[in-house]
Amino acid sequence: MAAADWTHANIEKTKKPTHSLVALSWQYSNEGLIKINTDRCRKGDDGRVAVGGVLRDSSGQWMRGFAVNLGVGQVLEVEL
């Protein structure tokens, strides 16, 4: 409710939204399936890149996690 109040107040002042808030949460997979969630990062100073993630079963239980240092690269390379 607070997010809606903030957005409404800003629209009234500026007549256009300046930001939008979105609530994100993990969604369960179908029964018998495994879901993988990943994220990547790149350090801007020297270009080091890494990726990590977690595998979860259909009840949300963590099965295995991982983290990998990929060396030096670009954001697009890490995304791929």
Results as ranks from 00 to 15, higher is better:
E79L: 12
P17K: 04
A4Q: 12
A3I: 03
H8Y: 11
E77Q: 13
M63N: 05
G71H: 06
S20I: 15
H19V: 10
R64S: 04
G60P: 03
V51T: 08
R56S: 01
L21Q: 06
P17V: 07
A2S: 11
K13C: 02
W62V: 13
R64G: 00
D46F: 12
V49Q: 01
L55S: 02
G65D: 07
L33G: 01
T18L: 15
D5K: 09
T38A: 04
Q74N: 15
V72G: 01
T14G: 04
K16D: 11
S58D: 12
V49R: 01
F66D: 03
K13Y: 04
L76M: 12
C41F: 03
R42S: 01
G53F: 01
K13W: 05
L80H: 08
K16C: 15
S58K: 09
L80D: 14
R40G: 13
Y28E: 08
Q74W: 10
K16S: 15
D5C: 05
K13L: 11
R56E: 01
A9Q: 12
L80C: 14
V72E: 08
A2L: 11
V78M: 07
C41Q: 03
T14Y: 14
K43L: 15
R56F: 00
R40C: 11
E79A: 10
V78A: 12
G47H: 06
K35Q: 06
L55K: 01
S20H: 10
W62E: 06
L33C: 09
Q61Y: 08
T14D: 12
G60K: 08
R40Y: 05
H8I: 07
A4L: 15
E77I: 03
T38P: 00
P17W: 06
T7W: 04
S29L: 05
V22E: 09
G32R: 03
S20F: 15
V22F: 12
H19G: 05
E79Y: 09
D39L: 03
K35E: 02
R64F: 07
A3R: 08
L55I: 04
A2Y: 07
R42V: 05
E31W: 03
P17D: 09
V49F: 03
A2M: 05
F66I: 04
V72F: 12
G44V: 11
T18M: 13
D46R: 09
V22G: 00
A4F: 00
Q74S: 14
M63Y: 03
E79Q: 12
G53Y: 01
G71V: 04
I11G: 05
T18H: 14
V51N: 00
K43M: 09
V68R: 06
I11Y: 07
N69C: 03
G60H: 07
G53A: 03
K15P: 00
D45F: 08
L76C: 02
F66S: 05
A67C: 11
L24Q: 10
V51Y: 01
K35H: 04
A67P: 00
A23K: 10
K16A: 14
N37F: 00
K35G: 02
N30Q: 13
V78W: 02
N10L: 08
V68H: 08
V75E: 07
E12N: 13
R56K: 12
A4Y: 10
R48I: 08
V68I: 15
C41H: 01
L21V: 15
H19C: 10
I36T: 09
I36R: 04
K15Q: 15
A23D: 02
L24Y: 14
G65L: 07
A3W: 07
D45V: 14
